[in-house]
Nucleic acid binder design. Structure first.
Lengths: 359, 359
DNA sequence: CCGAATATTGTTAGCGCTGTCATTTTGAAT
DNA sequence: ATTCAAAATGACAGCGCTAACAATATTCGG
């Protein structure tokens, strides 16, 4: 036995040397075991693991970060998401992080932050994260992506909207939106209104495409009058609803590009005295808790955001591992597409027989 | 000039030596400037700061963490909050962190986590945070608090409910709840129902106290039949509402201990055909976005959660600073109480003259 | 059973910073 | 000027870990 117990018995906190002493190996071997490096005899590894358990050892991330190149810390960047979206994303990300021994650090631009890319760069430099999770719409800002590629930092995008290569997770917004509209058409609706999302969110466009596509497939003429502006919030849904319902020939159904706006539409309808779903069907998108706090409960599309974020985090960790091991360009784009099922609740029904028409 | 430029000109990243060389001082002096230590000549400090600006230097938190005792990282621990609550808390915390150059790391117990205190301890050991922000109801778990005190880690509680010393921020739940009930009484209500919050959240009790206190102050008899169980979620609000409205003599107003449950009560009322606020007044607590997505918009109490979290974070950073400088026990309990104003919207109105009574 | 190839383990030098303590400089009082 | 405490600055040893390389053990072909 060549190892010498040079350190005091584990006092304030246990270090790698304590473990090495306990297991009767060198600190490097302990390090190997911690990092799952090859070429450790199984018996040795087990002895080390036992010592780790015995001493309740946890490696110091600062020391690891300083010595190696990994900080064991991931960053999650968001900007103006809905609280629910963020919450679910964080929950998923955290789950994956815990699994892999990573910590999760958050960052969001200040309200008065001018340049997102600069902020991201500063955050990365300051916190030394190993990779970034980009929550929409941050993942759709080319300047940010370019900056990250320039400094060579792995990132994964949640719900990206362009075709840029690189790992990401998403749902097929277009297909899901089509499904909603087809559901309405099957119920017998022909005049179907649409409330667009925020123009900066790429999802807005995809959902609008889906809306139009479904109409076209069923030979229903697209009427731009029936497509109202929106910004993904309750207010704008309210305004859009008021606009649509006061058209000369109002729609019998309205599909809002997210739940918040659908809630706004419902409120508009109620203010104008429309019965839902008897006189107007409404559908949303996202399946946020709002959709169940509404009356009647909202027909919507469920986005598995937690799962998506979890998978995104796993992809990110994989990517970090690969880069760390020197494999520069990992195989292909690696986009994972998730199912986004339609959830039919109580705001959609066949149109009333009496043709509703405003004076 | 004794300093020697021994390092390559700032390449991959700038270190303290680069700054020292640029400013023509020793690295220790740069360190002093970074850490606002005393005994640096203003002119020298300025020269160093200029070099820092020039080279765009940011200290490496890993190295700082390893060498010093501070990791420049705060932890935020939550468990089952409402997404909105968490969102606002994070926003506030992040703002304070950015101000002070701290990073924010999140942690939440897994769904199947048995022992919160153990989890917290593990998190702390693993991430080496300098202090913890405890989001309710985590700050009300004595085991967690005890554990943190044992390992001597600073923490600040947001909305704590007991009288334990130590820094925290809170609102006066009881007074705010009283204000709601008094508002209802002023409108002319006498039979006022209450939906309790989750029994584990201490706020539940405080709000119930406030409810009862207001009644007592106005010589209204407390009727335990009018106090329904709840768990702070929509479901339980729905059930509670159904229960209350189907009493032989139902209340003319219902105060739910948070907005989600108020939404549930409103849905229950609607299912049973009650008009709001004509036949039933409803009030909530928290002023979450839900309260504005409801129709009619909800009368509620606004909790300045973002501000509270911001202030809590500042307190935490202060505390960390003081401990670091050796002042063991900082002055007093340092609890900051925030105003929680009543927001009267459209779900409260005078009771209808016709006494509503179920068959 | 020998030597080379391979698998396993150990040694040592930092990573970038802060703490400690030594050294130099400054400035006010002789 | 001279003295000397106080202020300002610097030298240097780690913090706990990993990377690179060195050293040793093990295995295998003949």
């Amino acid at each position: 036995m060549t190892t010498i117990r040079k350190r005091r018995p584990p006092k304030g906190h246990v270090t790698i040397s304590d473990v090495a002493a306990e297991a009767g190996v060198s600190i490097k071997t302990v390090s190997r075991v911690i990092n799952n490096e090859p070429n450790v005899r199984p018996a040795t590894a087990e002895r080390v693991r036992e010592a780790i358990r015995q001493l309740d050892y946890l490696p110091d991330p600062s020391a690891r970060g300083l010595a190696g190149q990994l900080s064991w810390m991931l960053g999650l960047i968001y900007d103006n998401p809905s609280p629910n979206y963020l919450f679910r994303a964080i929950t998923g990300a955290l789950q994956a992080c815990n699994q892999a021994g990573y910590a999760l650090s958050l960052q969001a631009p200040d309200a008065n932050e001018r340049d997102l890319a600069t902020m991201v760069l500063r955050f990365v430099a300051q916190s030394r994260v190993d990779g970034l999770l980009l929550i929409p719409p941050v993942g759709d800002v080319p300047a940010v992506l370019d900056a990250l590629e320039r400094i060579h930092l792995p990132y994964v995008r949640v719900a990206p909207l362009d075709e840029r290569p690189g790992p990401g997770v998403c749902i097929d917004d277009r297909a899901a939106a089509s499904r909603v509209v087809e559901h309405l058409i099957e119920l017998g609706h022909e005049r179907i209104g649409f409330v667009r999302g925020h123009p900066d969110h790429g999802a807005s466009e995809a959902r609008q495409d889906g809306y139009r596509l479904a109409l076209m497939r069923h030979r229903i003429l697209i009427d731009e009058q029936l497509e109202a502006e929106g910004r993904f919030d309750f207010e704008s849904g309210l305004v859009a609803g008021q606009y649509l319902l006061q058209l000369d020939t109002p729609p019998t159904a309205i599909f809002a590009a997210n739940d918040e706006m659908a809630a706004g539409v419902i409120q508009a309808a109620r203010q104008l005295g429309w019965e839902i779903p008897a006189q107007l069907s409404v559908a949303g998108f996202d399946d946020t808790p709002v959709s169940r706090s509404l009356w009647p409960p909202l027909t919507t599309v469920h986005q598995p955001i937690r799962h998506m974020a979890l998978r995104a985090t796993e992809l990110l960790i994989e990517e970090i591992g690969q880069r760390h091991r020197g494999h520069e360009k990992p195989p292909g784009p690696r986009i994972q597409v998730f199912d986004a099922p339609l959830v039919v609740r109580a705001t959609t029904a066949p149109p009333s027989s009496s043709s509703t028409e405003n004076p």
